[in-house]
């Protein structure tokens, strides 16, 4: 099974070609570029480098969010359109899961973090059981301080991954002390192959209905709902 994996959910671009036995090729560009320009040529180059044609693909796996709204949409649009037009399955996997690989042999919980500005993060809580990734707490958009209070109550070691952990490191340590561990620089980057591994065994649904998981409502929508509720209370 030739699987193409696409992750454009934050500013790094990560693409992989893999099968059940091996990661055949993987691209990682960890510098701020425009995915709308770069992703398609990067996919073309990666496939070409391993002598694969689009028609040789059997499945597509995509990071479906959370992350940058536009970034996630570019990946999901490319993935679902390729899958639809090639008539192959596509599955969406949490973008946070691409940062969990560092915790595979770690005895504790894995917490990938994306900075969501104003003290907020996109995060989730994962653990490996027999090297299989399991979800402990669903992906959320939350104030980092509130999230850390929840983690502190769990009394377990937590491995924080992703480059944005640096932004919160002092706060993390103040809440979790020695139980907080920070991954090193080589493990701070998203790895498309990690979500490929998860997506390879997932049951695909209807291709048309693969959509981003933004977690947040669009700002205008949230404000509109607030207003509606305000009016109802008057």
């Amino acid at each position: 099974m030739n699987v193409l994996v696409i992750d454009t959910s934050n500013f790094p671009l990560s693409i992989a070609v893999m099968n059940e036995q091996a990661v055949v090729a993987e691209t990682l560009i960890n510098s701020k570029k425009n995915h709308s320009i770069q992703a398609m040529p990067a996919i073309e180059a990666l496939l070409q480098s391993v002598d694969l044609q689009p028609k040789d693909l059997d499945r597509i796996v995509v990071a479906k969010g959370p992350g940058s709204y536009t970034g996630v949409r570019i990946g999901v649009t490319l993935a679902k359109t390729l899958a639809w037009t090639l008539d192959i399955p596509v599955v969406g996997v949490s973008s946070l899961a691409s940062l969990t690989g560092a915790g595979r042999y770690f005895d504790g919980l894995v917490c990938p973090v994306f900075d969501a500005r104003r003290g907020q993060v996109y995060t989730g809580l994962y653990a490996f059981k027999d090297q299989q990734l399991t979800e402990v707490k669903e992906d959320v958009n939350i104030l980092m301080e509130t999230w850390l209070d929840q983690l502190a109550e769990m009394n377990e070691k937590v491995l924080f991954t992703g480059k944005d952990t640096a932004v919160f490191w002092e706060l993390i340590q103040s809440k979790l002390g020695d139980r907080a561990i920070q991954s090193v620089v080589t493990e701070q980057v998203p790895r498309a192959s990690e979500i490929g591994l998860i997506g390879m065994s997932m049951e695909p649904g209807n291709t048309h209905d693969v959509v981003p998981n933004y977690i947040r409502l669009a700002e205008a929508e949230a404000k509109w709902l607030e207003r509606q509720q305000g009016e109802r209370h008057e």
């Binding site: 398609m40 390729l82 037009t85």
Partner: peptide, 11 residues
């Protein structure tokens, strides 16, 4: 644009 590129590339 990205949907169009994906179809163009695939075929």
């Amino acid at each position: 644009v990205n949907a169009a590129k994906a179809i163009a590339f695939a075929h």
